[in-house]
Structures are given as C-alpha cells and as structure tokens.
C-alpha cells in the first residue's frame, strides 16, 4: 500500500512505457508523501472492469493510506496524469487519476500493520530490527 491500478484501453501503454510510468508514479508518491518506495505497488491492466475507463483512454486509481492532505492528493494525481501522458503519448484530457483512502490500521505488509502517515521512519526501523532478529536466530 499504496496500490496504484493503471487501467487502459488495449494497446494504449506499451511494455516499454510501463516501467517508466511505474517509476514516475513511485517517485511522485514518495516525494509528495515521504513514504518509502518499498510500499508502492503499480499494476497495469487493459480494459479491466475496475476501475472503469468511462470513455477515457487511461485511468490511474490509487488506494492510499488515509491521512494525506487534499493538497498532497491533488499534486499526486496531477503529476501522475502527466507521467502517463508523457510516457504513453496519450492526450492529457484522456487520462484520469484519482485516489481513495484506506486506514493504515486495516493493512498488513511485511507482517506488520502499516504505519500512519508520518510514522514511516520509525516503522521501517522497527521492521528492519525484527527482520534482523529473525535472521540471527
């Protein structure tokens, strides 16, 4: 978490563009929120039923931890739309991006409940210590 689903019309994003878009989405999310990249998942689909395309060519739908500000969300979706536009050469008006919130306390990743926004550094340190202790056994 976050999980970004990029659903497009068939052939709208070729295999060469996918890693570039995934990298940009990851960077954007991390730059805006301060989250570590290890949390960021980006999955591409063509003409999947969800999220619906609604006459657009591409939609980026992000499920993110709750607690981000409206300004952070606006920055992210604007920059992600541009990333898809740039790397896939899809007109900007044909790209939609939006996010929905999920409480961090509802999600387990790496065997631990995810941290609240802003608490990532302490979470990562504790998580790494747990991994190190397990490896030492």
């Amino acid at each position: 978490m976050p999980l970004y689903i990029c659903n497009t019309k068939k052939g709208a994003i070729d295999d060469a563009a996918k890693p570039k878009i995934a990298s940009d989405i990851t960077d954007i999310h991390c730059e805006v929120t301060g989250a570590p990249p290890t949390f960021v998942h980006v999955f591409f689909f063509e003409e999947a039923p969800q999220p619906p395309l609604s006459n657009k060519t591409a939609i980026v739908f992000g499920t993110i931890r709750g607690g981000r500000t409206d300004d952070q969300k606006a920055q992210m979706v604007d920059r992600m739309r541009n990333a898809v536009h740039t790397h896939a050469n899809i007109p900007l008006d044909d790209v939609v991006a939006l996010t929905t919130d999920t409480p961090a306390s509802w999600v387990m990743e790496g065997g631990d409940i995810l941290p609240e926004p802003g608490e990532e550094a302490a979470w990562l340190a504790a998580h790494q210590a747990k991994i190190d202790a397990a490896n030492a056994d």
Binding site: D15, V42, F44
Partner: peptide, 20 residues
C-alpha cells in the same frame, strides 16, 4: 482472482513478486 499480466506489475518501481 486477478492475475496481473506479465511485465505489468511493479513494486518499488521494480518487477513485482507481491500478492495482494
């Protein structure tokens, strides 16, 4: 059950091995 197509899943901007 949804299968992410080959070369279409990325975690930390690298090819993903994650299950959700």
């Amino acid at each position: 059950w949804i299968v992410v197509p080959e070369r279409s899943g990325y975690t930390a901007a690298r090819p993903s091995t994650s299950v959700i």
